[in-house]
């Protein structure tokens, strides 16, 4: 049985991330992980005419680099799983128009990064594909327009707000051996604990992350210290202490090995409020930083839990609270992997 416990998938085949790439914008390049990304742009427009084209350019660049690193061409890929934050996930749709790979669009807000990785692994395990390409992107300016105010509007954001990461991450998932193995994934439930403030995503998403982590540990019978790191997507400085607190109530102590991608991606002195967020947040930190740490032998086993807020501005204005979700993927470093 591949379904372990209630919500965890354990893959029976050896499945690997054979190649990955992370592309970022200026603020991320200036962050502490700046030298670990494959490509960075020093201007938010990324040389394009408007923000949407800029985000598409980020995703296309990430995919190109990812294919190049994996010595693959688009025609070698069986399936493209991709998503982003813009209406009808147009960034992914228009990228798929370009690369002509059979395409499934995915949306899990900022959890899309791990959603695509989990589904890709499951489809390979089920023998529906040999090579799956996943990609996610987010852009600070497109997200501001989509979810908040015009970028030049002089509104004041509270300290609990987050700053959407400009960037894109792509990976190729296949059975071709590499140093990074995907062993299981836990699919989250939608949680809503009544948070209505769109400038406080950390508080809204922490319960979803806590639920997915606790369920994963229960399903697998593991304890938190089984992992060298449990990384959440974009809980930021607000959601992180809430997550620790919520899991403490269930007798799981995460203080030693929890990290948040939203806090790793920027320095505290950058103008990013409580930290980074967006699809690209967990993607660029995982593909740009965490996988390198695993290859270097600094991390053996990690559990990456990407968190997403599933609302839009219309729902917020209708006084609805914010439903949230979290999906987790377990990555393990294996010795003697492929050629990367």
């Amino acid at each position: 049985m591949k379904l372990t416990g209630k919500q965890t998938w354990t893959f029976s085949k050896p499945i690997y991330i054979t190649s990955s790439a992370a592309v970022v914008g200026p603020e991320e390049a200036a962050g502490p992980l700046g030298d670990q990304y494959d490509l960075s742009f020093d201007e938010l427009h990324c040389g394009q005419a408007n923000w949407e084209l800029a985000e598409r350019h980020l995703m296309e660049q990430a995919i190109n680099i990812c294919l190049e690193k994996g010595t693959k061409q688009a025609s070698d890929i069986d399936l493209f799983l991709s998503g982003d934050l813009i209406n009808q996930t147009v960034i992914a749709n228009y990228t798929a128009r370009q690369n002509q790979i059979p395409f499934l669009g995915m949306f899990g807000a900022c959890s899309t990064s791990m959603e695509t990785l989990a589904v890709a692994s499951a489809l390979i395990d089920g023998e529906f594909a040999n090579n799956v390409l996943t990609a996610v992107s987010s852009h600070n300016a497109t997200a501001e327009r989509q979810f908040r105010y015009p970028t030049e509007y002089g509104g004041q954001k509270p300290d609990s707000a987050t700053y959407t990461v400009t960037g894109a991450g792509a990976s190729i998932v296949s059975t071709t051996p590499s140093p990074i193995k995907i062993t299981c994934a836990t699919i989250g439930r939608v949680m809503d604990l009544g948070i209505t403030d769109p400038f406080d995503m950390g508080s809204a998403m922490a319960p979803a992350a806590a639920d997915t982590i606790a369920t994963h540990l229960k399903d697998t019978g593991r304890s938190p210290d089984y992992y060298d790191m449990i990384a959440t997507g974009d809980l930021s400085a607000v959601g992180t202490p809430i997550l620790i607190e919520l899991l403490k109530e269930q007798n799981y102590d995460l203080t030693a090995n929890h990290q948040d991608c939203g806090l790793l991606v920027y320095r505290p002195d950058q103008p990013v409020f409580a930290g980074g967020s967006g699809c690209a947040c967990s993607a660029v930190v995982t593909y740009g930083h965490l996988l390198k740490e695993m290859k270097a032998g600094n991390l053996k086993r990690i559990f990456v839990v990407a968190t997403g807020a599933l609302m839009n501005p219309i729902m917020i204005q209708q006084q609805e609270s914010i439903p949230t979700i979290a999906h987790g993927v377990v990555l393990e470093a294996v010795s003697g992997g492929g050629n990367q």
């Binding site: 509270p158 609990s160 809503d192 009544g194 508080s203 400085a237 607000v238 809430i242």
Partner: peptide
Amino acid sequence: LTPEQQAYKEKIKPLQP
């Protein structure tokens, strides 16, 4: 708010900026 949501709101108050 449901009682659960109300309890959560109270619980996170000291943890918020």
